[in-house]
Design a binder for these strands. Sequence first.
DNA 1: ATTACATATGAACAGATGATCATATGTTTG
DNA 2: CAAACATATGATCATCTGTTCATATGTAAT
Lengths: 118, 118
Amino acid sequence: MQDRIECCEEHCVHPEILEHVKLEMPNEEALYDLAELFKVFGDTTRIRILYVLFESEMCVCDIAELLNMSQSAISHQLRVLKQAKLVGNRREGKTIYYFLADDHVRTIIGQGMEHIEE
Amino acid sequence: MQDRIECCEEHCVHPEILEHVKLEMPNEEALYDLAELFKVFGDTTRIRILYVLFESEMCVCDIAELLNMSQSAISHQLRVLKQAKLVGNRREGKTIYYFLADDHVRTIIGQGMEHIEE
DNA sequence: ATTACATATGAACAGATGATCATATGTTTG
DNA sequence: CAAACATATGATCATCTGTTCATATGTAAT
């Protein structure tokens, strides 16, 4: 957060900063992936699933019961969470256990909580 | 992440853990607000705006030019970012400068980046 | 006051999203 | 292998989202 940029377009007093900002921007693909990742967090059902998995790994129908939702709805959302690599799973007989994939999940949700608690 | 829960519903071997998880869950309103917050991060345009503001506060039309988008589109999105308290603004004559509101933005985006870079 | 400039806002429309329902897949047991 | 169980998946539909377009608001200068 240095100098600010004067308005407007062709009147910008600091074109070198505009240029600098452009260079600092991550590439389009990374920004797209980042937005996609946050979209995954941007749904109450998925947030609740992640919270439930904070406590213990669990099978699909347990999550469904805890959240009072259909098995199908949970399964669809677990798929989304898995594609985003936020959860992993392992099979044990008929049952498939889901668990949190890594600690970024906790950090990200924790920071989000801090923000809304202000 | 302690004991796992056995399947299914009425067959759960650890009903006390199910009960424990229910008690640990934040209230519905907090979860809703949290999802709403992440929804705001879940859009490429808004992510790009936040990234641009990492470097320097900026006026609307500068952002619009940097992102190569219409003034209206940027203005609509800045409104969303402001409602989520992710950005603030101040007026200086005709111009309105937008800036990042707090450091949670950097932390959250930073963690998100770490996650997708794996 | 009139004009120009910077920004905001409302309506509208296309595209994305999430739950439901019906059904399919994969596993174990008898 | 047939039945039961746990989970996954595809289609459908109502709802939500983001951009555009036209226009409104607010400020400064002449």
